[in-house]
Amino acid sequence: MKIARSLLVLVLAFSIFSISPAFAAEKTIDQYYMYDVDYDHEAYNQLERFLYTDILSGYEETEVYEEDGEIYEYTSIFVKPGNTITRAQFTKILVNAMNLTSGELNKSFPDVKATDWHYDYVQIATSNGIIIGKPDGTFKPNEKITRAQMASMIYRAFEPTVDFSAPVKTFTDVTTNNSAYEAIVKAAGVGIIKGIKNEFKPNNPAKRSQAVLMIDRALHLELGTAVDESQVTQVVDRNITEEFLLTEQQDLEGLKTLYRETTMGYYLAFSLDNLAFQEDSEEMEGTVTAKQVGEHTSTVVSLNKRFAEVKVDNLKVHVAMSAPDMSFEMTVDMSGTAYLKKTEDGTWKIYNIVYDEDYEDAFTAAMEEE
């Protein structure tokens, strides 16, 4: 867990570390902010989770502008939740979400070439029995995927790991003659599909947000294990304790390694971007120290096969800053919730942390008092 956003910025600003460009993140923090999704959007949390964990990349747009004779670039990420989604795009998201790898391939498609960007994703999904293809033997990767086709792929993908034995839910516009009937009614029975009143509208082109919602619901129906529970708390505890230790030792290499081994996606970019902050900061004289007070506890709140939430309580931190023109001491409560995802290699990593309190206001108030 990060010691604190404001605290780390203060540490860097007062030159405890000397940062080099080598520590900039592979992806910058700007690449994890959705600029076209409001907080009240029905799929906001799911879209953010997929973006933060690199399941979804979004569309990157860079604006170049000049100010005071300097040229700047500003990156915006557009998720476009209301847009339709192609069969290839949906396949990529599904493969990424499930950390799928290629199995034995016994089928190929003439309209999916090795030079296509989606080739590997289609091969992986096909080898895992998720893709069947069209009656004419093609896949039609650029065709808009329908809600029925999406339901079928999700059902085939999650049938080995999700219990679909709940009573089915039927829709007035999905008959037994529909090739996706079983997938639709069983997926609806466990809550993966919600429908619109009594209709599913199976032939309608699916929206990007609908794809994310359905996959996310399925992911959260997969069961975790006792081993997973132990691993997620170990990762969170390691991130907390080693970050304090390495910060005190001024071990920048150690911090970089820690972040790469315990964080991913948004939180990795955030962590490494903070380390690179010094590049653009004026050197200032002073010291900042942060020490944990007492012991914290980490408790698993929710856990499934690929996602977990860990509540961290009693994480008290004593912060002291001394500089020529200001100084202060304060103890802040850094308790909060860590969100983790299992990666392709089977390790758990933190992709976001939400704190219980707005400690940034406390830091600001303390500095203003001085």
Rank of each mutant, 00 (worst) to 15 (best):
M34S: 07
M98I: 04
S327P: 00
F171W: 07
S302M: 03
A25T: 02
I29H: 04
N177Q: 13
N142T: 14
D325F: 12
I350W: 04
N128A: 06
T347Q: 15
D273W: 11
S6P: 00
G191Y: 02
T28G: 08
A362P: 00
D111L: 10
L252N: 11
L255F: 08
A323Q: 05
N304R: 01
K27L: 14
S108D: 11
V288Y: 01
F244H: 11
S15I: 03
V319E: 01
K194P: 01
L100W: 05
Y74M: 10
A211W: 02
E67T: 06
S76I: 02
F363E: 01
M334C: 05
N142I: 06
I16F: 12
I3K: 03
Y33G: 03
S20W: 02
E285W: 13
V301C: 00
N83R: 11
E48W: 07
A320M: 10
F363G: 01
S102C: 09
Y65T: 03
V236I: 10
F164I: 08
S165Y: 05
D30A: 14
V190P: 02
T364V: 13
K341A: 12
R238P: 03
G133E: 04
T62M: 01
A4R: 01
I215C: 10
P160S: 05
I240D: 06
D173C: 09
G103I: 04
K305R: 15
L56F: 15
E357G: 02
S281A: 14
G195M: 07
G58V: 01
L56N: 04
D54M: 00
K2S: 04
M98C: 08
L268T: 12
Q231E: 09
G254S: 10
